[in-house]
Amino acid sequence: MTSPIYSLRQVRQAYNGRLALDLDELDVPERSILGLAGHNGSGKSTLLRILAFLEDPASGSVTYAGRSAGTRDAALRREVTLLTQEPYLLKRSVLGNVAFGLRLRGEESRERAAEALDMVGLAPEKFARRSWRELSGGEAQRVALAARLALRPRVLLLDEPTNNLDRESATRIKDAALAARTAWGATLVVVSHDLPWLLAVADRTVTMADGRMLPAA
């Protein structure tokens, strides 16, 4: 049995007095794929922000790789990365965007960025120099995913990454995300409304409603 990379206990989050997340227990094994399904407002994105260490829960404990963790541990955000459904691209070229996180770490960037662009199906020689303005919605989403894949994160969190995308872009993004586990053993937590896909690829799929996990069917 693989040890959990995340262990959440009694985690609750509320905004303006409204309970957004109410989890008694959640373990995510390392190198696994956890699928999160549920209607809008069911707490999936809140859970991802907590897992990404972008916000702390109002109460409860979050353990990452065996130790208590939260937003105070900025170094953890170099292992865990989140792709939102409408990602923001920096006002620079495609290569500048994909290599940005590597440059923050002082790492050699060009080759890794090119590999990441290949993974999402964007030919580096065609796209690397392109401005962020010249991308379609699907291309922008793939560039944003490439920027995260280039970091070879230990945990990749995806929040509805294929929403409103054409079929080719959606397929590329799904394949690239799954390749992250195959290539370097990344743990994936994926929020998606594409339930058949989630059920096909995830080791475990959890359905959420009103901030709670529904019992497995």
């Binding site: 170099r78 865990v80 792709l83 990602p87 923001y88 923050l104 995260r148």
Partner: peptide, 26 residues
């Protein structure tokens, strides 16, 4: 600036100083 910028920088591993510098550059 777009509200998503800060989260993007944090999720790419930016330190507080790098968030400041990149935000001013944006």
């Amino acid at each position: 600036l777009d509200r998503r910028l800060r989260h993007t920088l944090l999720t790419l591993g930016a330190s507080p100083g790098q968030v400041l510098a990149t935000t001013l550059w944006e």
